[in-house]
Structures are given as structure tokens and as C-alpha cells.
Write a protein that binds this DNA or RNA. Structure first.
Lengths: 236, 236
DNA sequence: ATTAATATAAATGTGCACATTTGGCACGCC
DNA sequence: GGCGTGCCAAATGTGCACATTTATATTAAT
């Protein structure tokens, strides 16, 4: 017999978790918004304990911040936090590029250039969402080339953090101009000039950091239900 | 009125968490040991729900692994996992040393040399526990010099993971010989030779990796209560 | 009129009891 | 004798009810 969608599924936890997480990552929930347990339980049509578990997991992952007896809220990162994330990314990528010296094969080079082609296309079409996503994936491509799960996981963490931040600190200029810098890094790598690649990478991140500006908070306040991707609830 | 030690303290969660965590970190619990909820609740004298929360947190931090409906156990890292952790540390430290170029002040240099003095002393006294701890703190000193919370947190994570692993994969030779390599790195840094420092660091980690050997699992099986640091329980 | 204190209501935290799943064991069958 | 099936016990997972804490609103006093 088929398991009912809303009952004892082990998938339900994951579904709720992903729904809340993507809502946070895509900046759909304004920074500082309090996520109470009871309304969330009603929105998703599940018990409060399940919401509780998901929220605790997100807090443990630093995706939400908890104040004892006062619930959880989406963190409002300071400008220093944002700089720290980008600096960490810069330091890590320097190490990655250094480790990549010598083990750069034609296959990886091909994939990098293909990816940059996609970035250029998205930039030409003024597709800002794709540009941001592809820009992150470019750096992931470099990190995954090492085949080290620890490094990849850390970088993925940094990228999701920074993707939250661009929704708060929106740069006046779009991030499209970064495509040329990506290409320059790959070019330096192709010519086995690792030091130059590292310098270009550092400069690249400094450019991103310098573009960070404080965005005015919007006063719109949509209801909770519309924030999350529609999740089927069992019919009564 | 004073809060009772075993009741509604917010400290209790943290106390149990730290007790279990340090027991894992110090290798007091053999890899593969299953940590059931009910016995743990009896050992610590707290309710099962509290143990539950702590265990879930440790699972989220990858300190324990959970199998659905079958409880949690301390993970048994493979040799590949260990190598990945050390490689990640090597890559990260290359980036750290690169970023440290130019911003190396006399104060940091002084602290590094003092620390190496402690390491040498511990090595002379054959104090293996202190040697391992100090060796980790040396690399933390380098990372903290950047003042970046993200990097420091990641390195701390890597270090705790590797400290678990030395209890499983015990090197035949002790890690005392690494002190000279630490000193060489600092010396290269002091003379502003960053490339040499990075090379020495990479070589250092390769030495550590090459010393990893598979340790025979011990057959001793102590009871749960003696594994954790004594935690006061309220008198009836 | 403003402030402070109290009471009320709502939201979080906790423990308990029950449901569900899993692993072992015994019995029976091939 | 080996293997498959079914029952039983133990451990995990879940929902519910209650305790505790916090914020708000109302009232009274200065």
C-alpha cells in the first residue's frame, strides 16, 4: 500500500528542510524575520515537533540563529561577516590553485572553458540569476578538481553563505564583469603560471568585496505561506 | 534562588554535549561503538530527550553517524578519509601562508617561536599527549593570525577530525620529529620566503600522511559509565 | 500624561507515553 | 542439516500535554 504523503514518511523531514533552506538561500525570507514554530507547522501541515527538529538542524548549520526561549530568525550578517566569507574564499582558492599546479589536465581545462562560455552567454543576456549561479559553480569546478570532499564541502558552505548575503548587500553594479577575470585565471592556469593565477584570483575577490554596498531594507512583508515552495498537504 | 544542577539548567545540555564530544575526541570510545539513547540517559542521569538532542547535534556536526531506526555510532574513518583531511589541511595552510605574506609582524613571530619552544620541551620529555595537542595549536596559531572566523572554525574542525583519527590509525613513529619542520616553516616566514614556507608546509603534511598506519583494533570493551568524565548527578 | 508594575497571553522547552521499526530467536518446512 | 518464516523484545521515532519564559497590554499611581 502506498504511504500517504503527509504522515510517517521519512521524506517529509527532508522536504520541509529543503523548502525552508531554499527559501533562505534564495533570499525569499528577509533577514531578521522570526520563524515561529507554530505558524510553520500550520503552513506545512505537519506537527510542531517536526518543524522543531528541522529548525534545530538549520541552527546547527549556522543557517539560522537561535535565541533561547525566543525562537529562531534568519541572521542579519554584518559587513564584517560578508568580508570574512569572501576573504576565506580567497585564502582557500589560493591554496586550491597552488595544489592544482601540475595536475591540470586537458579535460579540466576543457570543462573550465566551456563553463566560461556559459557565463559569457548569461552575461550577454543580462540573466543575473544565472550569472550568480554560474559564477559560484566556476569556483566549485576548481575546488572539485582536487577530488577532496572536505574542501568541496567547505567551499559549498561558503558559497551558500555568500549567496544569502548578496540578497542583503546588493551591489549596485552587477557581477557580470567578473567573467573576464574568470577567463584570465584559466588562461594563467593553462600557461602553467600558478603565481599569476593566484594573484588574479585574489584581485578577483577584492573586486567583489569592493562592490559590496549596503542595501536598503524593503518594507514589504508577505505572509509565511507564500514564502515556501508549495508543499502538498493531505486532503482531509 | 539557586538553580538545581540537574534540572532546567541550560548548562546541562552543554555539559552532556562536551562530555560526549571530548570522549569521542580523546578516542576513549572505540570506533564503531554504538551509542544507545537509553543507557546514555541513565549514565548521565538526564532524560532521554536531552541525550537525543545532543546526539542529533553531534550527527549534524559529522562527529557521529546515524542509521535510521538503528541509532548512532562513532564513525570508523577509512584511510582515504584521513588522507582527505590532511590534504585539506595542506591546501588550506598553503593559502594561509600565502595570505600571511607581508602581514607578518614581530608579535606573531614571537608567539610562534615561543610555541615551538613548548613543543621542543614536550618532545624532549616524551610527552606524547602534549606533543599532539601543541602540534595542532601551532597550525591554529597560523590560521588565527588572519583573524578570520570562517578559516579558524574550518581548521578547528579539521584538527578535531584528525585527532580522532590518530587514535585509530596510530603511527608507529611518534609525531615528535615534526617540531623541526614547524621551526623551519617559521624560519622561512621570518625571512619573508613565503614560497619556501609553503613548500616546507606541504612536505610536513606529506610526512604526517606517510606515517599513517593501520592500527590493530583492541578487543577491550569497557562499560559506558567509565568512558565519560564524571558528571555530578543530583542527590535524591 | 508618563511611567512602572502586574497580569495575561503566546511561544518555546521538556518529559512522558505510545507507535513503529529492527534484530534476534525459535519453530517448522524443505 | 540448512533455510525460510513468523513471533517477540528492545530501541528509535513521534505526538501530546504541561511547565516555563517572554512580550504585551492594561491599570494604577506619581
Amino acid at each position: 500500500m502506498m504511504p500517504r504523503p503527509g504522515k510517517g514518511d521519512p521524506e517529509t523531514d527532508e522536504a520541509v528542510y529543503k523548502a525552508v533552506l531554499t527559501a533562505i538561500l534564495e533570499g525569499r525570507i528577509e533577514a531578521g524575520t522570526k520563524l515561529a514554530e507554530t505558524p510553520l507547522a500550520e503552513v506545512f501541515g505537519v506537527s510542531r515537533e517536526r518543524i522543531r527538529k528541522v529548525l534545530h538542524r538549520l541552527v546547527a548549520e549556522r543557517r539560522l540563529e537561535a535565541i533561547p526561549n525566543r525562537g529562531v530568525r534568519v541572521p542579519e550578517p554584518s559587513l564584517e561577516d560578508v568580508r570574512a566569507v569572501y576573504q576565506a574564499h580567497r585564502v582557500l582558492e589560493a591554496g586550491i590553485l597552488h595544489a592544482l599546479a601540475g595536475r591540470l589536465d586537458a579535460d579540466l581545462l576543457q570543462r573550465l572553458e566551456t563553463h566560461i562560455g556559459w557565463e559569457q552567454r548569461a552575461a550577454m543576456e543580462r540573466d543575473r540569476a544565472s550569472s550568480v549561479r554560474l559564477s559560484g559553480e566556476f569556483h566549485l569546478l576548481l575546488a572539485d578538481a582536487l577530488g577532496n570532499a572536505e574542501i568541496s564541502a567547505f567551499l559549498r558552505n561558503l558559497l551558500t553563505r555568500s549567496s544569502i548575503m548578496v540578497s542583503v548587500y546588493e551591489s549596485a553594479a552587477d557581477s557580470i564583469c567578473g567573467v573576464h577575470e574568470h577567463a584570465a585565471i584559466v588562461e594563467a592556469l593553462a600557461s602553467n603560471n600558478v603565481d599569476k593565477a593566484i594573484s588574479l584570483s585574489a584581485e578577483h575577490f577584492r573586486h567583489i568585496e569592493s562592490r559590496l554596498r549596503l542595501k536598503k531594507p524593503e518594507v514589504e512583508k508577505p505572509d509565511l505561506a507564500s514564502l515556501f515552495t508549495p508543499l502538498r498537504v493531505p486532503e482531509p
